[in-house]
Simulated assay, not measured.
Amino acid sequence: MRGFRSKLDAGAPLNLAVETEKAQALLQTFSTASLLASAALGAFCFLADHVLALPFIQQHVWLRAALDNSVHGAVGLWSWAIVIGLRKKSDFYEVALAGFLASVIDLDHFYLAGSLSLKAALNLPRRPPLHCSTLIPAICFSLRLLMWACRLKDSWCSLPWMLFISLASHHVRDGARHGLWACPLGHTPPISYWLYITITATLPHLCSVLMYLTGTRDMISTKHGVAIDV
């Protein structure tokens, strides 16, 4: 009995340290640095949208499309940077990948058009497949199951969440103009502009909390560090 109690006493400080680290990780999700970065992200979206609305850009289809896609990428990489922080060189690679995923989604316009013509890609009879918002949880969950089945290392555990941020940020931004496509339920009305800005700015924090609740942040704490340093 004494041996059992001694084991409990020895394990208590370790458990307390683990719980303290988890609490610190959750608090860092709403640190001053991350909140300022989120506010800056919202301001960036506001400024970028007004620049894209300039007559000169609207008159040049290729320029408008390229800049709009670049903003999608910037929002995706910025959002993921808030989630993981920028503490090591490898973090920059992850952030760049998130930006790439957020922008490459628009290739499904050309897929549905069956042509490399930008005019055809911008005048589609319906929304392209990767713009179906109900696919986001399905794709991310399927990727998580695939990673579990393939027994990939914990260093890859954040990949489904990166994909979530990239897809969701893209869909929310498009939703301000076209609404969200919740297949098979249909389309929503366009998201109000300030709601789109608010969702975009708070999405990284929502992702961080979900990662904490699912234990993902614990697995990447040794990889990225507990503190978010944007």
Rank of each mutant, 00 (worst) to 15 (best):
M219T: 05
L195V: 14
L63I: 15
F164V: 04
S6W: 10
L152Q: 02
C183K: 07
H178V: 10
C150G: 02
S133L: 14
V230H: 10
T188K: 13
S79A: 15
A66W: 11
D91N: 03
C140H: 03
K223R: 04
N123M: 01
A168K: 09
A81R: 06
V83F: 00
I220T: 01
L180S: 10
A121I: 11
L135N: 13
H205D: 03
H60G: 07
S103K: 12
L206R: 05
L101A: 04
L54C: 08
Y93E: 00
W181I: 06
A138L: 15
P137M: 08
R151A: 06
A227H: 10
L159P: 00
D106V: 07
I165T: 05
G175E: 12
D49T: 13
I82G: 01
V209C: 00
L26V: 04
Y212H: 07
G186S: 13
L36K: 12
R177Y: 10
W62Y: 13
I199P: 02
F56K: 09
I228F: 02
A39L: 15
R126N: 12
D174H: 06
C207G: 00
G76D: 07
A10I: 02
L124F: 04
D229F: 06
Y212G: 01
L195D: 10
S115A: 05
G85D: 03
S38L: 05
L77R: 04
W80F: 04
A65H: 14
F110K: 08
V209I: 07
V209L: 08
K119M: 09
T29A: 03
F4V: 15
I82P: 01
F141V: 08
Q58F: 06
M219V: 08
G186L: 10
A168G: 02
M219N: 11
L213A: 04
H60I: 14
A176L: 12
A66Q: 06
A53D: 15
L167W: 07
A25S: 07
L101K: 00
S70I: 12
P13F: 05
E94F: 01
L213F: 02
G225T: 01
S115Y: 06
G85N: 03
V83G: 00
L152H: 01
L27R: 12
I57G: 09
W161Y: 00
T20D: 12
L124W: 07
I139T: 03
L116A: 09
Y111W: 14
T198L: 14
A12V: 04
R177G: 11
L47E: 12
A43G: 07
T134S: 06
V104Q: 06
V226Q: 03
